[in-house]
């Protein structure tokens, strides 16, 4: 393992993994408290459509995925309001629609692209320096947003109507939060893939919820759980020659279930 750290691809994997684990750790606390895990899964599958648009148009797939995911996040919200339907139905529609767009575009372009599997299941070992820079930029921007509006987001999470009465622009902050969620998902896709990214959005926050007594401690525990999952997951997958994304998600789930089962009934 020590000699593996000497190789540049493992170093990049660790740097990218650490950045993403902290980023998703912060977001995950809110996803769990606001019961948004389905929208996380929905947007991450939608990102697949965005990646396919990039391949089809010959543009950078991560860039098109970011734009497309933000559009889907806003589209989900718009459909709920306009159609007066519940959010899970709206997510269900965009989720499958985006997958269909992705598959349609890929079959139209008739180029078998190996890299596609990297987006579906993650390929942390093939991450490029540019992607690390992008991940760093997203981490700084999203964490900055959350820190700056922490108390407003806390009040919205507690009760949206109280937040409105308190003078907070709830709709605007919700849209910015969805955009932050979308860019977080897209940069995380390179690490664990479209299929498993929702694990990083849900499990660290769920683990933190078992212990936390305040919002700040919940965010800190969530980040720590995410960080431990990525580091242990990478080491285990290197030792056993396993897909890193799967190793990370299996570790995250283990870190959730062990304290859950050991926890005394209160």
């Amino acid at each position: 393992m020590i000699e593996a750290l000497g190789s540049p691809f493992m170093q990049k994997a660790f740097v990218a993994g650490i950045l993403v684990s902290i980023l998703t750790g912060v977001i995950s606390a809110f996803i769990v408290l606001r019961k948004m895990s389905f929208i996380g899964a929905g947007i991450s599958h939608a990102a697949f459509g965005g990646v396919a648009i990039g391949f089809f148009a010959g543009a950078n797939p991560l860039l098109t995925a970011v734009l497309y995911s933000v559009a889907v996040a806003i589209g989900i919200d718009f459909t709920v309001r306009k159609g007066k339907i519940s959010e899970d139905v709206s997510i269900g529609i965009f989720y499958s629609l985006s997958m269909a767009i992705g598959i349609a575009l890929l079959s139209l372009s008739q180029t078998y692209n190996v890299d596609l599997f990297g987006y579906l299941f993650g390929n942390i070992l093939a991450i490029t320096p540019e992607e690390i820079v992008l991940t760093l930029a997203v981490s700084v921007a999203v964490s900055g947003f959350i820190v700056a509006f922490l108390k407003e987001l806390f009040l919205i999470t507690y009760n949206e109507e109280l937040a409105r009465v308190s003078g907070i622009r709830v709709d605007l902050l919700n849209i910015v939060f969805l955009a932050a969620l979308s860019v977080t998902i897209v940069v995380s896709i390179r690490i664990v893939g479209v299929i498993m990214v929702s694990a990083l959005l849900v499990i660290p926050g769920a683990t933190a919820r078992l212990f936390a007594r305040g919002l700040r401690s919940m965010i800190a525990i969530s980040c720590a759980a995410g960080l431990a999952s990525v580091i242990i997951g990478l080491v285990v997958s290197y030792e056993y020659d396993m897909a890193p994304g799967a190793g990370i998600v299996l570790t995250a789930a283990t870190l959730f279930f062990i304290p859950l089962l050991l926890k005394r009934r209160s």
Binding site: L33, K35, K151, N159, S166, I168, R213, G214
Partner: peptide, 20 residues
Amino acid sequence: NIDPGFPASVIDIVLMGRYN
């Protein structure tokens, strides 16, 4: 309709009234 695991102490909740 508060989540039974909502991580806030009583003083955290009352301070929300000061946010404005």
